[in-house]
Design a protein around this nucleic acid. Structure first.
Lengths: 109, 109
DNA sequence: ATTATTAATCGTAATATTGCGATATAATAA
DNA sequence: TTATTATATCGCAATATTACGATTAATAAT
């Protein structure tokens, strides 16, 4: 055990869960906000801004990259990270669907 | 280690991360969709619908409840779960802010 | 009172996550 | 070549998550 039983859920449910998991960490939220504010970003900046070790931030960036949420291009010695628009919009759409299912008032409770 | 360093992030970042974490699992997404579709819900239904053990679903429900996303009221022998509108709207607002920060095109990458 | 029925909790095993120091890699600069 | 700088990866320890069988607690039905 310890592993999610993905087989029993729909592709959409699994996909959304993976994307949400990727952003469900304050450090990764902070990273995304930083990237969006700068409309570009360099890892070194984050090590100064956030109070986490370089190895830790690199790992968080990797997770965001694995989920397809950000993209990194080598810019000389540095690496420039930015939002991957396709995935970002996909997440937005999937969330809109999820929230859209809410009818407001409940009959029970 | 193994614990998130919440102290170094803002309250909003931590709050959003907690809410996202709560819904970042396919089973919990399925549960929320089920609750919203029925506009009410009973745990037993979920055990039949989803292919997870009763203990597992109860645990997922507890996590959603802990995060304040759902609310459960005892209805005789059964328990009726439903969305907690306040938290649900809060999450929606926080996400709108996060996505609102995205400027679209990037200057780099 | 006894027996279902429903859901919560306990205990446990397997696996995942978080964070960091140390080290490796890669590109530039001296 | 030899530093220097920037980022990635490795290895590890601490903790968290996922899942489930077994048990418990509480109400309802017989």
């Amino acid at each position: 055990m310890g592993t999610t039983k993905s087989e029993i859920f729909t592709d959409r449910q699994n996909e959304l869960a993976v994307l949400l998991k990727a952003i469900a960490h304050p450090a990764r939220i902070a990273i995304l906000q930083h990237i969006m504010a700068a409309n570009a970003c360099i890892c070194g900046d984050l090590v100064d801004e956030l109070g986490l070790a370089q190895a830790t931030i690199s790992q968080h960036l990797k997770e965001l990259k694995n989920a397809g949420i950000i993209q990194g291009t080598i810019e000389g010695v540095k690496v420039c990270y930015c939002i991957e628009p396709k995935t970002w919009k996909l997440l937005q759409t999937q969330l809109a669907d999820l929230f859209g299912a809410y009818q407001g008032q409940n009959t029970c409770c």
